[in-house]
Design a protein around this nucleic acid. Sequence first.
DNA 1: TAGATTGTTAATCGATTAACAATC
DNA 2: TAGATTGTTAATCGATTAACAATC
Lengths: 256, 256
Amino acid sequence: MSQHRHPGAPGRAGAVPALPDLPEATVARLPEYLRALHNLADTGHETVSSEGLAGAAGVNSAKLRKDLSHLGSYGTRGVGYDVSLLIDQIEYVLGLTQRRAVALVGVGNLGHALAGYDGFASRGFRIAALFDADAGRVGEEINGLIVRHIDELARVAVEEAIAIGVIATPAPAAQAVADQLVAVGVTSILNFAPCVLSVPEGVDVRKVDLAIELQILSFHEHRKASLTALPATGGSALTALPGGLAVTEPQEAIGT
Amino acid sequence: MSQHRHPGAPGRAGAVPALPDLPEATVARLPEYLRALHNLADTGHETVSSEGLAGAAGVNSAKLRKDLSHLGSYGTRGVGYDVSLLIDQIEYVLGLTQRRAVALVGVGNLGHALAGYDGFASRGFRIAALFDADAGRVGEEINGLIVRHIDELARVAVEEAIAIGVIATPAPAAQAVADQLVAVGVTSILNFAPCVLSVPEGVDVRKVDLAIELQILSFHEHRKASLTALPATGGSALTALPGGLAVTEPQEAIGT
DNA sequence: TAGATTGTTAATCGATTAACAATC
DNA sequence: TAGATTGTTAATCGATTAACAATC
């Protein structure tokens, strides 16, 4: 892309601009770059090279440059990237220039913790409402918010302009909750319940399953054990073995 | 693969068998298949087709068959898969035939919830120890476990044969905790702190960042908004627009 | 045998990476 | 100008998918 023209930059005139078409893998990494950039800004850095930012974000620099090039990019050859310019750019693309309202459904064990999680507020979101189906929990105050009955979802969703629904109910309740969220116009759902949700086209679902993460780690433990236990090898054959799943330095390791 | 020979099946004679070399994407889906299979078993199904299991797991059947073929597979042409045989097979590959001990470090807001999360126990793991660096929290009982000071990690890790470490501390403390876990021989880490960990080769790290999940959803919200707001289109252009990121039915939607 | 369904093939697609020309 | 670093190219790799031969 020649010069600094690019689709959907901040400072758009008039109509909402179309966003650049970003590869899904790139979208998933942008928040990580953003976090690293905020750290850099907080420690007084005004400029950073692709090498430096990539290191802070745990990826290699080729991948970082490729990702940023999709945004139209704001680097200066021979110099690097302007930290605060890049922050603005990524925040714009991710839609973080507005603070989105989140509704959390299910205030059991996990939901309780999510309701109090600082990381949401500090990274662009506002927990605007808590819901539960259990009448015994309705009325409870968590972190300054009153738990409401799920039947109030429709009214509150409009009042609070809910943009994202978080499901933290037991699995058997999750699909019904998803249906209710969709019915009131929510088109983005983060699902912590260990089950598959079926939703109409145009609704995005992301899933976080804590046990699945452990099971994936368990596979790698199992594999490492089966390698070290190879006949007539004994102890720490790990690094010596060919094709070992030995993981290279900064994270990203097994396909995060 | 002809007949039922395959690498690393249960019932291995003598030495620990090498595990099949599984694509990382396949490994990440096996737990989802396992969950679906348990549901099927609980509802009295003895057999399931690739079509049926794929539907229950939210993937297409070609992908499912391809994934299972990597295990050496246990289907019967014209019939389908034996549910309990496949459960055993997947549990074996994932290393779930032993109940792995998990140490949780950081019993703040999120750590507290994780310590009480049922899903770990029910899917093959045992939370064996809780740690915190804050002396004020040491001694507290959570879900039948006493919170210990992080300095006791080395002793307890050996006593309890800790296989997996879960980090639920604030970001600034996470790297030091990871170093301590590695020092006592832990080679699998699940990191909830929003930061990159650097670990030696042979140590696997997976990361769960709740705010990042919301930020990815925010991107998609932003994009949908930029589509519907296209000049002279007005309302719900979503389904009508070419190349829309409209998401097809059962989940998996945006690269889970 | 006829019908059903697996396991595999091969084509396609998207993501990663190293290398380097462009350019500050 | 010389040195540094970006943005892009092109090669490679891994994952997905449809189609179908094998086979129960």
